[in-house]
Amino acid sequence: MAKQNVTPHMISRRNFLKGAGILGLGVFGVASLSGCAPDSSSAAGGSASGTTVSVLTYNGNSPYCYLDDAGNLVGYDVDVLKAVDEKLDDYSFSIDSMDFNAMITACESGSAELVSCQLVPNEDRKAKFIFCEEPFCLSPMVFATADPNCKTLDDMAGKSTIATPGGYEYGMLQAYNEKYPDKALTFETVSSLTMADAFKMISSGQVDSFLCYDGTFDAVNEEVGAGLYKTDVVMCESTYFMFNKDQTELRDAVDGVLKEMKSDGSLAKIAEQDLGTDVFSAYGDALSDNELVA
C-alpha cells in the first residue's frame, strides 16, 4: 500500500484557524458515507475465552475497514481490534461488518457493544455513546478537488464544498467562514452522500471540493475514475472506538490496552503495516482532540 504523504503543512483543531493563509482544511466524517446491505463477512478476534463482545465495523472504507478480494473483512481498524482482543483475558470479540447507519443503531440499542469506523466524538454522539480516552488512530485530512493548484485555505477561498448540515465538519467550516469571511467557502448542502458520488460531482463540475480522509482518497479516486487532485495534508483528527453507554467496564478495559499498545509501539507497527506510516509520530504534534478554535 502506498505511503500517505507526510507534510509539515498540518494543523490542529486548536490552531487551524490561525493558519488560514498557509494551510488547508479537514474532512467530512465517515458518517457521510452510505453503506451497503448488512454483510455476513466476519473477522473473529483472537481470544478463545471470556465474555463475547459483538463488534461492528463498516466494510467500504479502505484502508481502515473493507473487504479484500476474497471477501474477508480487513484493514487497520480490524487489525487493531484483533490485537486488542488478544490482550483482553475477560472478553472475546466477534467482529462483523454492517451498513454504517445500521451499525450505529445497533450500538445505541445494545445489540452491539462496540463499533469502529474512524469515528470522531461530537456532541450528538457523546450524548448517546461512550468513547475511549485513547485514540486508536490519527487520520490526516485533505480536500479533494479538480484543481491541481488548490493546496491551501487561500486557494480554496470562494470555492464550493459539499456539507452535511449538523455534521461535525459542517460546524468546523462554518466557524472558519465566520472568522475569515473574505476567504469563506460556499456550501452545497446534502443530507447524505457517498464519497464516490461526491468525487463524481467534483469531476462533473457540480461542486469544487469535498473534505475526506487522505487514506481513502486514492482508493475512491481510482474506483470512480474521477481524476481528482488533493491538497496537502492540512488537519488531523483523532479517531476512537465507540461503545454502547452501558459498556463502561469494556470501554475501560479496551482503553487500558490501547494505552499499553501505544506505549510499547505495537499500535504504531500496525499503522505502518496498514497505512504506510506511523501516524502517531507523523501527526501527533498536529493534533488537539475535540478542539476547533482556541
Rank of each mutant, 00 (worst) to 15 (best):
D232W: 11
T239A: 15
D252N: 04
F217T: 01
M235P: 00
Q247E: 15
Y229C: 12
E222Y: 10
D208H: 03
Y213C: 06
D218M: 08
V220M: 06
F199V: 00
V234G: 14
L258W: 13
D246N: 07
Q206V: 03
D214V: 07
A253Q: 04
V234T: 13
A226Q: 08
T248A: 11
G205I: 01
D218F: 06
T231M: 07
T194D: 02
E222P: 00
V257S: 11
A198L: 01
C236S: 10
D246I: 00
F241E: 03
F199N: 00
Y213N: 01
V220T: 06
V207A: 02
L228T: 01
E249D: 15
E260K: 07
G225P: 12
K245F: 04
G256W: 14
D255E: 12
N221H: 02
F199A: 00
S203E: 13
T216N: 09
K230E: 03
T239I: 14
M195R: 10
C212M: 14
V254N: 05
M235Q: 07
E222A: 10
T248W: 14
D214G: 12
L258P: 12
D232H: 09
F210Y: 15
K245V: 05
Y213A: 05
M235E: 08
V254H: 10
A198V: 01
E223T: 07
R251M: 11
L250Q: 03
L250E: 02
